[in-house]
């Protein structure tokens, strides 16, 4: 149906590769990418909960995996994706009210989102590492 009739061979409008990358473009792509990463990351939450429900032996195994360097890198990236997607969502809520569409405001919110997500992720990990007694 999509290829039917006179529309089949019409030229397409210019797409991503034509344009110079801008901060707003990158933020849009990052929002979608972090969303997709969180989709996959939900498996880790399910794994953790199932491990806790299945008994001490398996829980200690999973908990030990999270405590490795690789495990920590994954969890750090997971934290950032979560916070970044959340702040991006809040930006969308502001746009939903019909305000914040002026270009300087859009640029400012983009910068605030990226700085905020990195800062909050660092803060969360600082609190977590302090509470659990360092690295």
């Amino acid at each position: 149906m999509a290829q039917a009739g006179p529309q089949a061979d019409r030229p397409l409008s210019p797409h991503l590769q034509i344009y110079k990358p801008m901060l707003t473009t990158i933020m849009s792509i990052l929002h979608r990418l972090t969303g997709m990463a969180l989709y996959a990351g939900s498996l880790l939450v399910a794994w953790w909960l199932l491990a806790a429900a299945s008994g001490p032996q398996y829980y200690n195994f999973v908990s030990g995996l999270a405590d490795t360097i690789f495990g920590r890198i994954v969890l750090f990236a997971y934290t950032w994706a979560l916070i970044h997607h959340m702040l991006g969502g809040i930006r969308h809520f502001i746009w939903d009210t019909g305000s914040g569409f002026e270009l300087p405001t859009v640029e400012l919110m983009a910068r605030a989102t990226i700085i905020g997500s990195l800062g909050l992720t660092a803060l969360i990990w600082a609190v977590a590492l302090t509470m659990t007694g360092g690295l």
Partner: peptide, 19 residues
């Protein structure tokens, strides 16, 4: 996030009781 931080490094009994 708060829950995971609270339970990080805790033993299984504490984790299950809390969750």
């Amino acid at each position: 996030v708060f829950t995971v931080i609270m339970l990080a490094g805790k033993d299984h009994a504490t984790v299950t009781a809390y969750l």
